[in-house]
Design a protein around this nucleic acid. Structure first.
Lengths: 349, 349
DNA sequence: GGTTAGCACTCGGTAAAATCGAGTGCTAAC
DNA sequence: GTTAGCACTCGATTTTACCGAGTGCTAACC
């Protein structure tokens, strides 16, 4: 359904049955062999009873229309991004192997712990499952309200502000005072902070006391420290699983370096995944996402939602010649399980 | 001083002046060129006024003693791990370039935030500074005592146990009850938990109430959740900076894959670094640390201490042919700055 | 008109051959 | 003990030849 949102240009890319079959055959074979594929292997392989010559004629057409490309004359054809796109768009949903299904079931039956831990482990699961690099994103808590704040004093001038949010996130912030405060004063400041902040979001302005006593100064300091953090997309979590797979799955040191470099920049990864989600797409191939350094990559994403709202996503990253069907099935399955996992938690006793 | 603790076997490896010079020249040149180095370049390069033939004779001696190796007949020599070891042991402390010194000063002048954030950013700094992969380890808080615990209820059955430790660490744990609890009950449970746990370590046994009321059940549940976590080395933090550098600095996809695979396993990295620290050494070369998959790597570590106790370490990882002098200086400088950074925090107002 | 067999042609990849030269070990003279 | 001289080794590089998968085109075929 969401697929309608994709690239508006071409009038609804569609090919006659035979061209489609040929394109598909080329894609499949190239994914398996990593080699340019020639007319004859397509003619044999596919169930179209046609001679290589005919296949060739169709191939020049497909090349003219931009679905295929030739590395050089007298070599076979290789799919372009557009070719992969057609392939993916016309892919019937894959079904996961029983072993993998079992592995996922197993995992979610036994996984426990905080959201962060679950997400991190999920990224490892996905990576093991697929032998590709996985990306799991949990979205931030910008709309979460404060459930509780507490000022704990480490020593006379050094305090720790611990804040609990309605979505279960907990943050800590150091509060360094230029003056000493007694235990009683800190406790009182903590009480006032609670009264002040509970129920508010980080965006909300609060009325801080303007008095000059120790307690008021503490309160002001704590509030400012907490709110100072607001602009950063605090709470966005990224977990990358199996980054070593990058070296297996891509060829060419240069590409490996580039991809790893990208994966290091968590903010970039988050925005990449969110961009793709925003487009309502589940796969971004090559140049489709704007990131030039990832032009030889394809990214599969599947949203994780709670109460109808997207709260995160799981993704897989690989070269454009990746096993789309299998990987999409894996991502989908895991995202479904995650969704019910978190959804179920609320009801469970 | 700590260096005396290293490999006991050989009676104090030492070479006559000329052999030492030659070995050093070979190491330096091989580090720069990544190529086997021949007798003539050594004869020219070094300030020993000797002919290549003499150098050759010395080289066979050095080879016999295990400091050098020949990839194949009629190729130059390459240092062995033992050769690097000798080189490193007789390296006078390097001095950091002014640009890098400035960068470090700059960094520590402006860095702020929680310990975790500082450590993470430090790992990035080290990596940028050196173009190698960095490892920053912060040690756990097994001896830390509980400063404060708080049970916050998210909904009737779903609570969050937030614990603040004396070392500034904060943990959260979900507490899922099979029964409903009112706000008042949760608050009371929270109060009792505080009375029970403050000042204790996670190892300590505590006397939980055995009554059957809601509050007692909550308390028991919370304590068990908290203590269940004890055995895991909670609080060990690892930050790896510049993992993409692995692809630049090592050659051979296979090596890159192996190293990345290791870096993914944080526990492994922690124990690697701690092993090296325990040996009282600052550099582990090739086979010196036990990790077979890292046999082509060298690791530089520098401890970070607070009040005389080691609270973490910074490290750099690269191929055995890495720029030891420069990197050791960088690691040392950063660890010193980190030490004073954390040490100073306590006194600062 | 679409399909196909036939065919000349292209061109990257591989293998064999030739060559190069850095570097060695040895020996004999210094 | 040092060094010049020299024959020798052997990986790396270049050259050449060649193969063959695959193409595009054309003419015959259904």
């Amino acid at each position: 359904m969401a697929r309608r949102v994709k690239t508006p240009p071409q009038p609804k890319s569609s090919l006659d049955a035979r061209k489609a079959t040929i394109l598909e055959a080329v894609v499949v074979e190239h994914i398996n062999t990593a080699q340019p594929v020639g007319s004859s292997s397509v003619a044999h392989n596919a169930d179209l009873a046609v001679s290589p010559a005919t296949v060739r004629t169709e191939m020049v057409a497909l090349e003219r229309e931009g679905y295929l490309a030739q590395p050089h004359t007298s070599a076979g054809r290789v799919p372009t991004d557009k070719g992969y796109r057609y392939f993916v768009d016309h892919l019937e949903a894959g079904i996961l192997g029983p072993a993998q299904q079992r592995q996922i079931k197993e995992f979610f039956a036994h996984v426990r712990g905080e959201v962060e831990d679950v997400l991190e482990q999920t990224s490892l699961l996905l990576s093991h499952l697929t032998s590709y690099t996985s990306v799991v994103v949990g979205s931030g808590h910008s709309h979460a309200t404060v459930l509780s704040v507490q000022l704990v004093n480490l020593d006379a001038r050094h305090h720790l502000l611990v804040t609990v949010f309605s979505d279960g996130n907990v943050t800590k912030h150091s509060v360094l005072a230029t003056f000493e405060a007694s235990h009683v004063e800190v406790t009182e400041a903590s009480r006032q902070l609670n009264a002040l902040l509970i129920g508010t979001t980080l965006e909300a302005k609060v009325q801080v006391p303007s008095r000059g006593d120790t307690i008021a100064k503490l309160v002001r300091e704590a509030v400012s420290v907490l709110h100072a953090e607001m602009p950063t997309i605090e709470g966005e979590q990224v977990y990358i699983g199996g980054s070593s797979k990058v070296a297996e799955v891509f060829e060419g040191v240069e590409t490996v370096r580039k991809v790893l470099g990208i994966l290091e920049q968590e903010l970039l990864v988050v925005s990449l995944v969110e961009d793709i989600l925003d487009k309502g797409v589940t796969v971004a191939i090559g140049s489709e996402h704007g990131f030039e350094p990832l032009s030889s990559c394809a990214v599969i994403v599947a949203p994780v939602s709670l109460d109808g709202e997207t709260i995160g996503a799981v993704g897989l990253l690989g070269p454009t010649r990746m096993k789309y069907q299998e990987l999409m099935a894996a991502a989908e399955a895991v995202s479904k399980h995650l969704t019910t996992h978190f959804g179920g938690e609320n009801d469970r006793g």
